[in-house]
């Protein structure tokens, strides 16, 4: 039998050897080690990625890009056919003056623009607001204001005055019967300012849709569409859209949770004292924001334009004074 002899070690080893760790076989070994490590890491990251995919849904809501020059507030006015041109010009002047001070815009719509079928013309308010929302697709607030109202005190923006969340929280009337005097449905008492999409006032007869503020969003679309349902329009509510509003607010909590009642004089002070509407609490005082002639539209013995004229005149003098000062 012949066995191979082990190879002899060389008698003259090289003076500097690589550290014993590195040798062709060791290198192969560590390479293999690295490879297994790599495989393990790859598998682990694959599992992690898999779980990540399952748990994290893509952020659906990207911050909407609001183009420059978008007004923060649009003042929506729905004009009925009886309004004279002169009066219309005054309304426009009043509103545009206020809007231009704060970079707001105005929006006018005519009742006859909308097909309401047999329903009263006042229902046009709702499609008009939606139309304004379509035309100003990035604006946050829409203030629907009756044509028989004047902005008397333009010293504060609408947002400062009402809609800023902190301000709104201080204004909100909590735990108040939605429909006076004794509806079992009360406004919520736990709402925060940023949760509010709909701001409205209330007098002794009920909710006042003549001056209300809506915030854009899915909720606003939902709210306006529900309110405008043809079966409500055909129901012959005594006060048309106003009663329909009271109805949906009381029956549907998803609407009530976005609603804030604020003191009536904040955005809807009455020009005349009416005991049926709440008496002196609703009547305009010196520095109030808005003056509105209440109830004149449906009363044939009254004339809205004539009632509003002195208020326009008061505003006009203030306006002229301010602007003459501004010129010097």
């Amino acid at each position: 039998m012949h066995f191979a002899l082990p190879p002899r070690k060389t008698s003259n080893p090289p003076p500097y050897t690589r550290p014993s760790k590195w040798s062709p076989t060791n290198a192969a070994h560590s390479l293999r080690k690295q490879r297994t490590l790599g495989v393990v890491i790859f598998c682990a990251s694959l599992v992690a990625f898999f779980i990540f995919l399952r748990t994290v849904t893509p952020a659906s809501v990207a911050a909407a890009n609001i183009p420059a020059g978008t007004p923060e507030v649009v003042i929506v006015t729905v004009i009925d056919d009886k309004v004279s041109q002169a009066y219309l010009d005054r309304i426009k002047h009043n509103r545009e003056d206020y809007a231009s001070q704060y970079g707001y815009k105005t929006f006018y719509a005519h009742q006859k623009d909308f097909d309401l079928g047999q329903a009263p013309k006042s229902w046009a308010l709702l499609p008009a607001i939606r139309k304004a929302m379509t035309e100003y697709p990035h604006t946050t607030y829409f203030w629907a204001l009756s044509p028989h109202a004047v902005i008397m005190n333009p010293t504060q923006s609408l947002v400062e005055r009402v809609m800023a969340p902190k301000k709104l929280e201080s204004l909100m009337i909590k735990d108040q019967p939605v429909v006076p005097p004794d509806s079992v449905i009360h406004t919520f008492s736990h709402l925060k300012g940023h949760q509010i999409d709909f701001v409205i006032t209330q007098d002794a007869e009920g909710l006042c849709s003549e001056s209300m503020i809506l915030r854009r969003g899915d909720w606003a679309n939902f709210f306006l569409d529900v309110w405008f349902d043809p079966l409500y329009r055909s129901y012959n509510f005594q006060k048309a859209e106003n009663h329909a509003l009271e109805h949906i607010v009381q029956w549907h909590p998803t609407i009530l949770t976005r609603l804030a009642l604020i003191p009536i004089r904040t955005i809807n002070a009455y020009t005349a004292q009416m005991s049926s509407r709440g008496g002196p609490a609703t009547t305009i005082m010196d520095d109030d924001f808005v003056a509105r002639a209440v109830g004149c539209e449906k009363d044939p013995t009254r004339n809205c334009e004539r009632e509003m004229t002195p208020w326009f005149d008061t505003w006009k003098t203030k306006y002229d004074v301010k602007h003459s000062h501004g010129q010097f």
Partner: peptide, 20 residues
């Protein structure tokens, strides 16, 4: 979803029901 809450809330309404 918020939308579904609204739908379920609005689905039954007395005024609609009374008429239909």
């Amino acid at each position: 979803s918020a939308w579904t809450d609204r739908l379920l809330d609005i689905w039954w309404d007395p005024v609609l029901y009374e008429q239909k």
